[in-house]
Simulated scan of single mutants.
Amino acid sequence: MASKPAKQTRIFVWCWPRSISTAFEKCLSFVEGVQTWHEPYCVAFNGELMANPQAMEPGSPIAIIFEQFAAMMKTIADQPNEFSDGRFLSADKFTFPNIKSMLEEEETAEGKKYIVIKDLATAVMDRVDCLPDVPSRHTFLIRHPHRFLLSQRKMILRVSNHQGDPADFDMFNSSPMLRDSFYKRDGMHFLWKYVQETGKDPNPIIIDAEDLMNHPDKILPKYLDALGIPFKEKYLTWDESEESLKTWKGSLDQVVIGKRMGVFEKAFKSSCFMPNTHTTPTKEDLTQDIMNVVGHILPGYEEMYENRIKPE
């Protein structure tokens, strides 16, 4: 289908979890003329999963986390919270077809020229029909799989309140938002190829998370220039307050739950990119659950890495 004309440029930022994507999203939200959308497709993906009775067994770690989510969502619906007076919507608004329609609509807030949508590639890889039919640029924020998978495992281990030996923990069986089958299909690499082959974006932009953290003064100007957005030195730092998040769009439930569970808290309070001096973990540092999937996504990462914006 041919793209519809649009007054505002849609800029997608696709990522894996634990790739400093929310800090990058907050950074971009301070760029003049930007309206931010926070993970709309992820909300739809999770909503379909939570509505599927086959997704869990009674008493399983997944079922327990489902119950925690349900209790939190009821609290969010019944009581005001720190983001209630923002632009966020209830989670039930986020179905895949509805997201497509919302992202095709022009932003009404004054002065907005760019609509930045940060999301997980795995959430949309089976629903590319629900990408908006408007001209869009696509960014891929990559990170070495050893890094993001170990970080994600650490976070899920904490959220799941695992009581046994951490070595025996399998994060893919302990969270309703994870399935090892999705990690055995490289959603980032698939989507990168898809937008090129379909003409949705013949020249998608790739940024490596470590490059961004260690060289923001070089990566951010090159990135904005590739998008045709003037760079300003002030974009390298931003207000650490969470007040700015109230201008974002997305699911109120997801943002509040993510903050309360510690998933977004550090990024929400960020004010700059912090250098990462740790070396990339080796294969010997990986746990068995990660070993079961990493081979499926490492080749795609390596190909994309060669095509990234480089700091030099």
Rank of each mutant, 00 (worst) to 15 (best):
H189N: 15
W192M: 06
Q254G: 12
K246M: 05
H215Y: 13
N203S: 14
E303C: 10
P216E: 04
D239N: 05
Y235S: 06
Y223R: 02
H296E: 14
G187N: 05
D208T: 02
K266M: 14
Y194A: 08
F268P: 07
F268R: 08
K200G: 12
E240R: 14
P221K: 00
K266E: 14
D217N: 09
L191Y: 09
K232I: 12
H215F: 15
P221W: 02
Q254V: 05
K193M: 13
T277K: 10
I206C: 05
D285G: 03
V294F: 09
I206V: 10
N292G: 11
Q254P: 09
D239H: 03
Y235D: 03
S241Q: 01
G187P: 02
G258R: 02
E210R: 12
K193T: 14
I205G: 07
N276S: 15
N203L: 09
I229E: 07
I257G: 15
L286E: 03
A267H: 10
I257T: 15
M261D: 13
T198V: 05
L298T: 12
E242M: 05
M188H: 06
Y235L: 01
K218S: 08
C272T: 15
D201C: 00
N214R: 02
T279L: 14
D201I: 03
G262K: 01
D289S: 01
T287I: 13
Q196H: 12
G258F: 00
G295M: 05
I229H: 03
D285E: 04
S271G: 12
T277G: 08
Q196M: 07
L191F: 10
I229N: 03
M274T: 15
P299D: 04
G295I: 06
E284T: 10
I205E: 00
F268C: 11
N276F: 14
L224F: 03
M188L: 14
E197Y: 11
T279C: 13
M261T: 13
L220D: 02
Q196E: 10
T282M: 12
F264K: 02
V293C: 04
G187K: 04
K234T: 15
S244V: 11
E302R: 08
V293E: 07
K200F: 13
I257Q: 15
A226M: 10
H296Y: 13
P275E: 01
Y194F: 15
N214C: 06
N203T: 13
G199I: 00
D239C: 02
L212K: 07
K193Y: 12
E233R: 08
I257A: 15
Y194M: 08
D208S: 01
V255S: 09
S271T: 10
G228H: 05
V293I: 06
E302P: 09
P202E: 07
P230R: 11
V256P: 01
P281D: 08
T280W: 06
D201H: 01
K200E: 11
S270A: 04
V255R: 07
N292V: 11
R260A: 14
P275H: 01
G262D: 03
L224Q: 05
